[in-house]
Computed example of a mutant assay.
Amino acid sequence: MSRFSESERDRIRSQLVEDGRELFARFGFDRTRIKDVTEAVGIGTSTFYQFFDSKEALYVAVLHAEQERIEAHIDAAVSEAETPREEVRTMLRTTFREVRTNPLASRLIVGGELQQLYDQLSEADRESLGSHPREADLPYASRWAAMDEVRYDDPDLINGLLRSLIFVTRAQDSPIAVLHVSEYEEVEAALIETIVDGLFVD
């Protein structure tokens, strides 16, 4: 039986996710060891398994929490927009910024790692996580598709169009033609404006 109270268990689990987030973002999944996380939290390696069945299960929990944080950040930014056009522009700018500056956001949105890893977990690992994490979709597509001024009425098409645009962030690291920061920012801004103009009828 665990020697931890319920509040202690909640605190330790939250700390594992928080410190795991920092280590996974800095070193990646493969180079981060369970020992690195437990040392950061200040618990023994054996204690880790009272909270997560594997490193993969912790990483999925980290990505799930990161997904919720990113979505809340985008929601806050978009809520300030005054028109549907500005909503789309703000959502894309905010998402691009997250993907460019946050390795975990890139792995979630561009790499689709959350669903990939979840599918590889054992049944025991899945049960320990509770709810099934969903794929990181860009929000608002259904609401925009219902608007008369929007050219397309298929939310999946709009979502796919906007998601595909995010892949331009990889152009910075292209082995064929690496873009300088100023060039990339210009390309990104032009692409966003082109998509916004094309998405709306007027």
Rank of each mutant, 00 (worst) to 15 (best):
E113P: 14
R89H: 12
E127C: 08
E56F: 00
R97E: 15
H73K: 07
H132I: 14
E71R: 00
V60N: 00
Q120D: 08
D137Y: 10
E18S: 11
E71A: 08
T38I: 08
G20S: 08
E22W: 00
P133F: 00
V62R: 01
Y49N: 03
Q120I: 00
E123H: 01
Q116T: 15
D75L: 04
V37Y: 05
R89P: 08
R69D: 11
L23P: 09
E98P: 04
E86Q: 00
H64S: 15
E68K: 10
E80L: 08
T38C: 11
T38G: 07
S106Y: 11
L63D: 02
F27V: 13
K55A: 13
T38V: 14
R33I: 05
L23H: 05
S79Y: 02
D36H: 11
T47N: 08
F51R: 03
V88I: 10
S46Q: 08
T45K: 12
L58Q: 06
P133N: 07
Y49T: 01
A61F: 01
L23S: 07
L108D: 05
V41E: 04
T45G: 14
R21P: 02
I43A: 05
T47F: 00
P84A: 02
I34D: 02
L108T: 02
K35W: 00
G130H: 00
T94W: 04
L92G: 04
G28R: 02
K55P: 13
V62C: 09
R31A: 15
R13Q: 15
Q120N: 00
A72G: 07
V110I: 14
L92S: 09
D53P: 12
Q50H: 06
L114R: 13
G130C: 05
R97S: 15
A65S: 10
I34T: 11
R31V: 12
M91Y: 01
I12G: 10
L58S: 11
V17L: 08
A77V: 11
F29T: 00
Q120E: 08
M91F: 02
T32H: 05
V62I: 09
R33N: 10
E123I: 03
I109L: 14
A81E: 02
P84F: 01
A77H: 07
Q116H: 13
I43S: 06
F96A: 14
F51C: 03
A65P: 05
E56D: 15
G130N: 00
G20H: 01
S122A: 15
V78H: 04
V99I: 11
D119A: 08
R126I: 05
